[in-house]
Structure formats: structure tokens, C-alpha cells
Design a protein around this nucleic acid. Structure first.
Length: 479
RNA sequence: GGCGCCGUAGCCAAGUGGUAAGGCGGAGGUCUGCAAAACCUCUAUUCGGCAGUUCGAAUCUGCCCGGCGCCUCCA
């Protein structure tokens, strides 16, 4: 394996080697299920999906953990606002998240631990940190991590010492902390917490876990249970998590275990709309559900996300989605052509066409280089053009086409860019085939006026026709 | 105030020292009764601006212009 990844920890490209040969532990920060996840979240999840799939494409066994944050300020606030308990409020959003992942064809993680179901391991972690003298109970009843006791603090975000912004607000807990940098591991239960069912008993007082604690506890308990280790190969998330979230995760985890928490830290850049970060404030949020409801092809969304490198900002525009859709349709069209060419292949032993060999090499070189998806996509299109030329020239027999198809499917399976197949009921199929036959009859009778009327009628239903030497082919195009 | 990112053809976007990938769009063409389908070909002497380093720079350095992000719970 020649994969090189940009490690935020060192700010450099580093050759990636799993800690244990042939298998990788991957932890990715999941959604906070207080609302529908937006496409910015999904851009990150798609970058992680590419990482996961490429590793698996290389024959590596990946153990992928993604947490679901179902207890934090926002979930509690939203539950209270809706007059529901925490679990009542988050349940539909958890369901929606999985539906959205399926829509976008994101390969599921192996486990999706929910924060509320892992409170025991979080309590254990806090206890360990208190025993180690790295955590203390503040006057407000919350437990804080003592940053001063952890020498490496700031290594990930590369800031020696964070200063509070001049004139910045000072929240009430500032008075309970020994050091402004200290952060809450465990928050003393408030009335609202109790009201929505977000409070648990612990040796150090009733309360609820802090956000950072959740990921450390879940990641560690998962890899301990499965492999008996305390070091992840890769931890990934959005760039905004570098500080404080991931910095704090490192402090908690390494403070407790004395082991490197994660060898590689990968961060995906933001998706913007109108050139600025999505935010409720600017009214420029867009969710995966919005796209699905507008019948946007998932392949086009994936294509759009992979058309920009993951460490580069991506500005989301409808125009770009339209052009992505065109590109994806072309790939789908090409695959149909290649598949047809590969059919009724005589038993033979043709060698793999050089264009396909080149594709595999270019594709791997691109993704090996810090998951350069845009370059991988370029390799795919170069292949499409070369293959079309060869097919036009009749240079590939069925066996060669079959070999090429195998390579094409292999690489396209990593990116998963093909347009979603449109569901066609038998009823629709029969109707379309009858009208196509009617048109064929009209054409045979040289009644082209009638033929064009039928074509227009079918087009009105989203059916496109293509007259080829071997007959008329039809397909349904989504909106 | 501190830290950092970006500016490549009409649009999107790779490339980060060796002479500009790819996609969309557009223009020609092939096939076709026709084509709105499909396929092929073409489409940046030039990389925000100005200096500099170098045999050589979109790629390195400096300054300037323009856009954006982070700085305690936002992917």
C-alpha cells in the first residue's frame, strides 16, 4: 500500500501504515441528532466514506466506529423546546440520519454507539482521570479536566496557549474552573437536564457527560473490546473539530491511557453555500432531505463532493449540481455501452485492454495521494473517452470489454458515482415498450410525423429514446 | 487582536520548480428519416496584481488587491 495521508497532528503528508497489518481502526465523529444533518455534515461523511472504501478496496479490514451525539446542549435545548424527553426528540432524527446515509450510499459504520447508551464507560473514564489527578470537581458540581496537568495539550491545534478573545464573554462556569483552558468532562445536572431525562448518577455527582468525553469513551471502549488496544489508526472529522473537540479528546484519552489516542488525524474542509459557511443565521442551510425531496440524484451529490479535494473548501451551487448530474449520466451511459459490449462474450482469454490497466494505475495513484478524488475522477473520464474510441473502432471483443468492465466497476465502486437506477414498475415498462413498438411500426411505414408524436409523448414522461442500428433503446431519466 | 486558508479557461476544478488533468457549457463533426439521444474532435502561450530568486515558477520569496475560516462545545 502506498497511501499517503495528510496528518493534522504533524501538518504533513505521511505514508499510512496500519498499526496492525491488514486492519485499520477508524473513528469518525458522527452527527448531533438534534435536527436533520445538513449537506456540510454529509460532505464530511462522504470524505470519510471514500477513505473507508479505498482502504477496503486495498484489501484492508476496516473497523469503523461512528458515534451519535444524542445528549448535549443542543439536543437538550431542542427537546425542552419541543416539550419532549431527550430520547423522544432524538429518535426521529436518528432514523432520518440513517435514511439520509442510505440515500447518499454511504457505507454504514460497523457500530453507531449512542452517547446515552455509553454513559457507564464515560463515568469510568472520568473516574480514571480523577484518580490520575487530571480532573477535579468544581464548586458548581461539574468535573473539569485540568489542562495544566497534560503537557501535550495544544499539539493538535498547534497553539501554545489559547487566549480568550478580547472582550469575549465569560460564561458562569469560568468561575468554577481553575484554569480558563479547562473544559467540562461531566456537567452537574440542571433542572432542564432532569426534565428531559438527561441526567445520570455518578460517584462524582449526578449530571451528564460533556461532549468531548463522549468520543474518547466510545472510541476507547470499542477498540478495547474488539482488539484489546487503546490506539486508533485514524480519527476523522470536520476541520472545526480540531479545536477544541479533538484537542480535548486527545487530552482525556491519553491522560487516561498513557497511549497515543490516534496515530492519524484527518480533517475535511467545509462546504459553503454562497461562499460562506452554512448557518441558521445566514439562512443558507441545506439538508440531505431537501435534496432527496427535490429528487436530486445521489450519484450527482457524490460526484459534486468528490470533484473537490477534501481539504479544500467546496462551494455548493445548483449549477454545479446540474453539471455533476450530466457527468454522472455520461458515466451511466458509458457503463451501459460497455456492459452491452461485454455480453455474449465468447469464451476466450483476451488480455485486459491497456486503457483499463492505465485506469487502475491512475486511479490508485490519485487516491494514494491523500485521497485526491478529483484526480481519480479525471482518470475515470479519460478512460471513458479512450474506451469509447476503442469501441467505435471495434477494437474490443466481448472478452476485452468484459475485462475493461471489471476494472471500471472496481474503481467506480470506490467512488460510487453512477446515477441511481430509477425504479420502473412492470406496468410502466409494458406501456413504454408498447409505445416504442408503435413508434417502430410508424417509422417502418415511414410515417415520421406519428413517430415523432410518440417520441414527444414519451419524453413528456421522462422517457428518452435512442435509435441505434440494433433497434430503439429507451431509458427513464429522473428529474 | 492572534492563527490560517483560498484566488487557474464562460462555470466548477486538479496540478505546488520543468513547460497547464478532468468535468460542465460552447463550437464543429459522425450516426440517424430527424435528433432533443449517443459518440468523436476542438475549446487557457497562460495560472488575482507587481517585483524578486532560478537555466526554468501557476508552483519558491516579498509586497499589494480581493474572498473566506478558526480563536471553548459548529462537519
Amino acid at each position: 500500500m502506498n497511501l499517503r495521508l495528510y496528518n493534522t497532528l504533524t501538518r504533513r503528508l505521511e505514508p499510512f501504515r496500519p498499526l496492525h497489518h491488514g486492519r485499520v481502526t477508524l473513528y469518525t465523529c458522527g452527527p448531533t441528532v438534534w435536527n436533520y444533518a445538513h449537506i456540510g455534515n454529509f460532505r464530511t461523511f462522504l470524505f470519510e466514506d471514500l477513505l473507508r472504501r479505498y482502504l477496503e478496496h486495498q484489501g484492508i479490514e476496516v473497523f469503523h466506529v461512528m458515534n451519535l451525539t444524542d445528549v448535549d446542549d443542543r439536543t437538550i435545548g431542542a427537546a425542552q423546546g419541543a416539550g419532549l424527553s431527550l430520547s423522544e426528540h432524538t429518535a426521529p432524527f436518528i432514523t432520518a440520519f440513517f435514511e439520509d446515509c442510505q440515500y447518499l450510499r454511504i457505507r454504514p459504520a460497523h457500530v453507531y454507539p449512542r452517547a446515552t447508551e455509553c454513559v457507564d464507560s464515560m463515568i469510568d473514564l472520568v473516574t480514571t482521570l480523577m484518580d490520575a489527578g487530571l480532573a477535579y470537581r468544581g464548586e458548581d458540581g461539574s468535573v473539569y479536566f485540568a489542562v495544566a496537568g497534560f503537557e501535550d495539550y495544544g499539539r493538535l491545534s498547534q497553539v501554545e496557549r489559547r487566549e480568550l478573545k478580547a472582550g469575549g464573554r465569560v460564561s458562569s462556569d469560568e468561575y468554577a474552573k481553575e484554569d480558563a483552558r479547562d473544559f467540562a468532562l461531566w456537567k452537574a445536572a440542571s433542572e432542564v437536564d432532569e426534565a428531559v431525562g438527561a441526567a445520570w448518577d455518578a460517584p462524582f455527582g449526578r449530571g451528564r457527560p460533556g461532549w468531548h468525553l463522549e468520543c474518547s469513551a466510545i472510541a476507547l471502549s470499542q477498540i478495547r473490546a474488539r482488539y484489546g488496544i487503546e490506539t486508533l489508526d485514524i480519527h476523522a472529522g470536520g476541520v472545526d473539530l480540531i479545536f477544541p473537540h479533538h484537542e480535548n479528546e486527545i487530552a482525556q484519552s491519553e491522560g487516561a491511557t498513557g497511549q497515543t489516542f490516534s496515530r492519524f488525524w484527518l480533517h475535511g474542509e467545509f462546504l459553503t453555500i454562497g461562499g460562506t459557511k452554512m448557518s441558521k443565521r445566514f439562512g443558507n442551510t441545506l439538508t440531505a432531505r431537501d435534496l432527496r425531496e427535490e429528487n436530486v440524484d445521489a450519484g450527482a451529490v457524490r460526484y459534486l463532493c468528490y470533484s473537490t479535494h477534501y481539504r479544500q473548501r467546496l462551494n455548493f451551487m445548483d449549477d454545479a449540481l446540474d453539471s455533476a448530474r450530466e457527468g454522472v449520466e455520461r458515466l451511466g451511459e458509458f457503463r451501459r455501452r460497455l456492459e452491452a459490449a461485454a455480453e455474449d462474450a465468447p469464451a476466450g482469454d483476451a488480455s485486459c485492454p491497456s486503457a483499463a490497466i492505465d485506469l487502475e494505475a491512475a486511479f490508485q495513484a490519485a487516491l494514494d495521494d491523500d485521497l485526491n478524488a478529483p484526480q481519480a475522477v479525471a482518470a475515470v473520464f479519460s478512460f471513458v473517452r479512450k474506451a469509447n474510441r476503442e469501441l467505435d473502432a471495434g477494437k474490443w471483443d466481448g472478452v476485452a470489454a468484459g475485462r475493461a468492465l471489471g476494472v471500471f466497476d472496481g474503481v467506480i465502486g470506490v467512488l460510487d458515482l453512477l446515477p441511481a437506477s430509477v425504479e420502473v414498475t412492470d406496468e410502466v415498462r409494458q406501456w413504454v415498450e408498447r409505445r416504442v413498438a408503435d413508434r417502430e411500426a410508424a417509422r417502418a411505414a415511414r410515417d415520421y410525423g406519428a413517430a415523432d408524436v410518440i417520441r414527444a409523448e414519451l419524453a413528456g414522461r421522462g422517457v428518452e429514446l435512442e435509435d441505434r442500428p440494433e433497434g430503439t433503446r429507451w431509458r427513464l431519466r429522473g428529474d
